[in-house]
Design a protein around this nucleic acid. Structure first.
Lengths: 351, 351
DNA sequence: CTACTAATTGCATACGTATGCTACAGTTCT
DNA sequence: AGAACTGTAGCATACGTATGCAATTAGTAG
């Protein structure tokens, strides 16, 4: 430690950081005055404020966020727990979330929770005095929720439901989204619809699948096939292969994420020379940027990243002001974006 | 502040965090002993250590990283400055970087530096007592470098050169990469090669372009066209349009990033019905995951994310142990990955 | 069993900021 | 003019941990 500093060090090349005390000295006021100048909503006279600001500028002072955290117990740091950034949905969301939080003076700290070091990741997470945690990873959700709750850290489940936890959650209306997808395929004349699932332990997948199933049932139909895609490219391609080898060959596949849909389309077109949408229609979920790339032009149930992020930030800000705020579940509406992996609606149809 | 806490609060529902003092009390040792138990490389007897660990476990104690930072002046936080995550190269890198740092007990804090709030972002960045900054954003590089340097924060420029700054940098050998791309096109019989550039203020683009130009010159050739793609999809498509409308129509285009190449290919194939690679060959840079997707199967000059990240982490760790370490520039070798946006080499060729 | 060395431990303080409380100066009102 | 306020400033302390130093204990050798 710096106990018993040699006085010389003060003047050495190693420019010690400027502290509020230095500024106070330079401005001829107390350290409290400096602190108050940089703390919105506190009482300082205009005179003092100006003296302080001038001295601060001259010395190049910047408040020390860490010290502030120790004193206030608010770090202004939000932990974001992720498992992978493969699926572009997540980078897009992170970018937006980070930007939005930044505007409120909050910052994102990343925790990758995929590998086997989950325990250490979690324990490291709890070490920083986070003001909130956004969980966007499949694994660990419930455990993180529990431990954070115990420490009074507010948790928002992002793009997954918070069933069984005491946490807030922000999701799209995946159930309705599933219905939209299925109905649109039926409307365009598809008769044999199959489903490629994401991880079956993900609430998002469950809801999407449930919506699909229900909409089909409503029209007296049902899935002609279902395979696990696990939100992975390889598994999705394998699922497509299996489905197309079935006795009853699907004429449409609903895929639980765009990311998997790209793999499915690649597989159908390049390996099986099957045309999309003529022979097989594809609808998926998310509407990631690449869904709009001309090579895919994916018909997909869009999640509004902006809406999801806005809700997430709102919850975080509220929790920041009211630690005891009750958990909230926000459901953002989904919307079908029709592109070119589905056949056109029959003329005169207005479903 | 918590000065003059009411004693009751101690027992209230609001479970105060467990501190090293609580643990010390429970274990019947001093707070120092607790601290030392959790600080590797300090002297504690096995007896004490066990007593402390037991008490800590019982109370659910976790060291407070913030307090530790205040005391040691090391936050174990690495700032990462980004402008956008559109180009998948960056999410891939961030994921890998974050994982790798995490294994060393370091954590990534994100700073988006694209918008107009650049000043506030930078000033917020300097507020946390970062142990290092990784700059992966085009804008601001030099300014960040300067200010961090002044505060003694070590900076690594990621995927960009550090010319003119006193910072370390980690880049691929873009110059050689450019040569590889150009030579391969020449070897496969392309005669009219054009270039779509990234932001012209990016060192990466400059080096790639320089390599291309030089390799062409070496074979007595030169670019038949050059347009700005600005690392953006739209601009890249526009560039492709312009190039293909030229009097001398290119039979190959080198694109400064995969991300732009996807847009170029989409444009050529879907809008102009030009076949790739038959009519126009495409080579780009990065080898992002999507380059391997069958719809594109991009021939590209790969950047080894693993190597870039390893070097970055090494530098950071070194700086952590030796604040005065001299800046270092690491250049990772590039490698051409041949897929299907280029024509085959002529039989018998072994270039 | 004593003298001396090595290994631990605890004390006290520092890290930089925020804030409750008291003191004081300046206003306004009767 | 005196009283009752209002608004600021400064003092002192707390946040939770790390560590230099002195004191104590254990360990070794003679």
């Amino acid at each position: 430690m710096n106990t018993h500093n040699t006085p010389q060090q003060k003047e050495s090349r190693d420019s010690r950081a400027v502290t509020s005390i230095d500024v106070a000295k330079a401005a001829g006021v107390s350290q409290s005055a400096v602190s108050r100048t940089f703390t919105p909503g506190t009482a300082v006279s205009e005179t003092t404020r100006l003296k302080v600001l001038e001295a601060a500028k001259k010395l190049g002072y910047r408040p020390n966020a860490i010290a502030r955290t120790l004193s206030t117990s608010r770090s202004r740091i939000i932990g974001v727990v992720l498992s992978t950034l493969d699926n572009q949905f997540y980078p897009t969301a992170i970018e937006s979330l980070s930007r939005s939080l930044q505007e409120h003076g909050l910052h994102v700290m990343l925790f990758m929770a995929d590998g086997r070091d989950v325990d250490s990741a979690l324990s490291q997470l709890l070490t920083y005095q986070l003001d909130g945690v956004v969980v966007a990873s499949a694994t660990l959700s419930s455990r993180i929720a529990r431990e954070c709750k115990a420490l009074g850290i507010s948790v928002v489940m992002f793009n997954r439901s918070a069933a069984g936890t005491q946490c807030s959650s922000v999701t799209s209306n995946n159930f309705e989204g599933g219905k939209l997808a299925a109905r649109y395929l039926l409307d365009t004349g598809c008769k044999r619809i199959a489903y490629i699932a994401g991880r079956s332990d993900s609430s998002t997948n469950r809801d999407r699948e449930a919506g699909v199933t229900l909409a089909l049932a409503e029209r007296g139909s049902q899935l002609v096939g279902r395979e696990e895609g696990n939100y992975e490219r390889r598994a999705a391609a394998a699922a497509a292969q299996t489905l197309m080898a079935q006795r009853i060959r699907p004429d449409a596949i609903i895929v639980a994420s765009d990311f998997m849909a790209f793999a499915v389309i690649d597989y159908l077109r390049q390996k099986l020379s099957i045309t999309v949408p003529e022979e097989v229609s594809i609808v998926s979920f998310d509407d990631v940027p690449a869904a709009d790339w001309e090579s895919y032009a994916l018909t997909t149930v869009a999640q509004s990243v902006a809406a999801l992020v806005n809700s997430t930030v709102s919850i975080i800000l509220e929790q920041l002001n009211d630690r005891e705020m009750v958990a909230r579940d926000v459901i953002v509406s989904s919307q079908l974006v029709v592109r070119r992996t589905t056949r056109p609606l029959p003329a005169g149809s207005n479903a």
